[in-house]
Nucleic acid binder design. Structure first.
Lengths: 208, 208
DNA sequence: GTCTATAGAAGGATAGAC
DNA sequence: GTCTATCCTTCTATAGAC
């Protein structure tokens, strides 16, 4: 494979990534990808054979991207409250740079759930669960740890995934979406930390 | 319009609703709608002229449906903590009955943001903001009320919108999705209530 | 109002020249 | 490796018989 091959293949792959991420598989046209890549439609098939194969290559790459950060963050060696703050900072900043990514992944997995297998093995939920459980001590029941995890993800992903709607509603109240998300980097972790603290307080009161 | 007209038009509309909600505009085929309605493809055009017009009729109906409950819940006359509990109970139960609805709305609005105008006027965020502000008193800054609202919506909608992914991840940890969501009706409101309580405690400590 | 048949457009994929 | 031209399937939409 010569250097030029590589360049063309990359141009196609990058263009496909942008358009698939934006529109999803069903609404994407091979012609649009060719146009954005600045090459001919036939070349798409020369390099990737079919629309499906090109899509799968793109999906793999993007699934890799979105789950790369996840697991590692809670492995860090720092106080739990700082982990929460660190997570929201890193995660929201990442999502701001890749605002279309969550909806793309959720939408396509929704359409064909077999795509799940492509990244499920990347996530060891029990490992994370134990980590958090160890951090939080006996005042938090292990049964609510999965809820805590889902809550944290919901709080950081949803406002980005539903950006057009949230943005529209905020706008109607005179609030700028971007400023709102900047605030959120601070507000969201404190929300979570407060909920956990209060839970611990109540749990200790009961024991007395 | 005779009685039979009405029946056929409804059959088409209902079939279209199911399929659009499931697959979205781009992936939906008129033939699939005709098949599910048990009638001929030509009839779709007889009653709704074009795919786009049929889609818009369906979208209007579904947008109406998902936002109907929203505003009213916080108008209820009860203690704030009960409002939170009431909201999650009602909202999660509603979403369990309509699991495809959030992704449909978010996905289609994402694709063409002009759809937003169809329901934005239904939501008076400042009205809700004032209600909540009144309920919470001075210990919660008015600036964080929008964050609180977005957090509440995130916590209830996201786990349903991302059902295939959440379900898959939970499954790999031996947790059943439906049981998880039943728990969530109780866990999520307590999470929010705890966060607010702790916030109020800290705010009062500062003042002393 | 409902059907069959078909027009007409769009999109994925391939053949073949260079 | 890249292009033009074209095939073939799929899909929306309409014409016209009943």
């Amino acid at each position: 494979m010569t250097k030029d091959d590589k360049l063309t293949e990359e141009k196609i792959f990058d263009a496909a990534t942008e358009i698939f991420e934006e529109k999803g598989l069903a609404a994407t046209r091979m012609q649009d990808i060719a146009d954005r890549a600045g090459i001919n439609k036939a070349l798409l098939h020369y390099y990737f054979r079919s629309k499906d194969k090109l899509f799968n290559a793109v999906f793999d790459k993007l699934a890799e991207k979105i789950f790369a950060k996840f697991a590692s963050i809670f492995e860090e060696d720092m106080p739990f409250e700082d982990k929460i703050r660190f997570f929201f900072t890193e995660h929201i900043k990442f999502l701001q740079k890749n605002p279309k990514l969550p909806m793309f992944i959720i939408g396509e997995v929704n359409r064909s759930p077999e795509l799940l297998s492509k990244f499920l093995d990347r996530i060891n939920i029990n490992r994370i669960k134990e980590k958090i459980s160890g951090d939080l001590g006996d005042d938090i029941s292990p049964d609510v740890i999965p809820h805590l995890m889902v809550s944290i993800i919901s709080l950081s992903v949803f406002p980005v995934a539903a950006k057009p709607i949230i943005s529209g509603i905020l706008d109607s109240a005179g609030i700028d979406y971007d400023s709102f998300m900047e605030e959120r980097i601070k507000v969201a972790p404190e929300f979570v930390i407060n909920a956990i603290k209060q839970q611990q307080v109540e749990s200790q009161n009961k024991r007395k």
